[in-house]
Design a protein around this nucleic acid. Structure first.
Lengths: 253, 253
DNA sequence: GTTATTTAATTTCGCAGACAAATGCAAGGT
DNA sequence: ACCTTGCATTTGTCTGCGAAATTAAATAAC
């Protein structure tokens, strides 16, 4: 094990997309960024496919993808229209990525942080009651890795992610795992892009240790509290919240 | 307004599905119920479409839907294989429905209750700090409706749903709204089916009133506590938990 | 005049067949 | 032992056609 790891990415930034995939991504980002508004009617299949210079087949498969994520609805004779926002599968990984691809809405990003805070701190509490020795070992190893490499390196960030993954697995709740991994992926990529060359926050290792020790002690409330503080720490290096009155615009879909 | 409402369903039990939709649903339920296991290779497009007596187009669109929900992955020359469970979008409404369609896994159902408890109680706390007078009015009306009609009637259940919807809207967090509505839809339909002709739980109105009053008082911790109790109440009329040692089977995907 | 029924138009939905592109694998060359 | 090349296989894309569904208008019935 002396050989260095090839630095393989667990979450490829931009996986290879087929034609229908790129069409879906383009339409999806257009919808999430407001180019197409809920209720808007997309042009017909023939017109759209001609405009994009693709076959109707590829275009239709792209629409199937968007419909599967709740973004559009198709009906014969009426066409394909953008669904109302309450039908959108906002927590779908692709929808999240599309929503934060260009100019991430800061209010939306804060809402996502809010949910992550809720779920992951609760996850810490659950982990404190259900963790096995194996989970503890993995988390301990991850903390060691963070301390050795720091978050400035890829290996250090990987160790950070390993810690959170082990914590989630300790909850034994597949829904919490699914939710958190997807949300964290979105949060990580967006903050990655936006905050490059920004002063690193204070050393995150002590906060992780506090979470770890509470979980090891089977101290649920302590783990929850420690996790809340840890997430608050990460939240400091995010753009200024500015959750103001301008929020109340556009209430109806 | 003296005329009776036509009892229109907000959440159609089985919406009209096109051919590709039924194929996706069938394959989806087969995957979620374990007929196809992660890593399994589906038969090729030509073979599958012939076996189902459908065109390759329809089958491919169904596969696109499943891929959009993280259930399968397709690559040329290798085929379409069932993804590992950690890639599944478990919180996708369709995936949830497919997972609980036949014989709902009780452990999985309890995990879902657990997540709902976490998120919705946190939502109550947020609602207590952000609610407007309009939200309070809507919630009050819903409680009145619950008291007048009881949960034995459709109108009463609708009022119950209205209460929770208003509470979610008061959080001003679209992710929490999206998550909770989807989860509740799954929980409601499954418990609906499984618990028919079961003694109704105790009167839910007082619990709702407690949540409401805490939110009206902007008492976040009180609202969270009251909501936790309210959900525990609903959880009583679910099949016996039996979260036992048999849980640790089949750890790896 | 109002209501029910039929007809027509439009759009998605589904089918069939062909070719292109990507990928894994084996054969062969260096 | 490693690299390249060719080949077979599977998904991906294109084209054209026709069916089904749904809306809206036209028509018939009362």
């Amino acid at each position: 094990m002396t050989k260095l790891m090839p630095l393989g990415r667990k979450h490829p930034i931009s996986k290879v997309l087929r034609l229908h995939g790129t069409i879906a991504r383009d339409l999806g980002t257009a919808i999430m960024s407001g180019v197409y508004q809920p209720g808007d009617l997309l042009t017909g299949e023939v017109a759209s496919s001609e405009r994009l210079a693709v076959s109707r087949t590829a275009y239709r498969e792209a629409v199937r993808i968007l419909a599967a994520k709740g973004l559009v609805e198709s009906k014969p004779k009426v066409g394909t229209k953008v669904s109302s926002k309450d039908k959108w599968h906002l927590l779908d990984p692709d929808v999240l990525a599309w929503a934060f691809e260009n100019e991430p809405d800061l209010d939306l990003l804060n809402s996502l942080f809010e949910l992550r805070n809720i779920v992951e701190s609760a996850a810490a509490a659950l982990a404190a009651t259900r963790r096995s020795e194996m989970h503890l070992k993995t988390m301990q190893r991850a903390i060691d890795g963070m301390a050795r490499f720091t978050l400035a390196t890829e290996a250090g960030r990987q160790a950070d992610q390993d810690f959170h993954t082990a914590l989630l697995q300790a909850t034994e709740n597949p829904f919490i795992m699914s939710l958190t991994t997807g949300v964290n992926a979105a949060v990580n990529t967006t903050t990655m892009f936006k905050q490059r060359n920004r002063p690193l926050p204070r050393d995150p290792v002590p906060d992780h240790v506090r979470v770890f020790e509470a979980i090891a002690d089977k101290n649920a409330v302590g783990a929850q509290k420690a996790m809340t503080e840890l997430i608050q720490l990460a939240r400091l290096d995010t753009p200024t919240p500015k959750r103001s009155a301008a929020r109340r615009t556009r209430r109806k879909t």
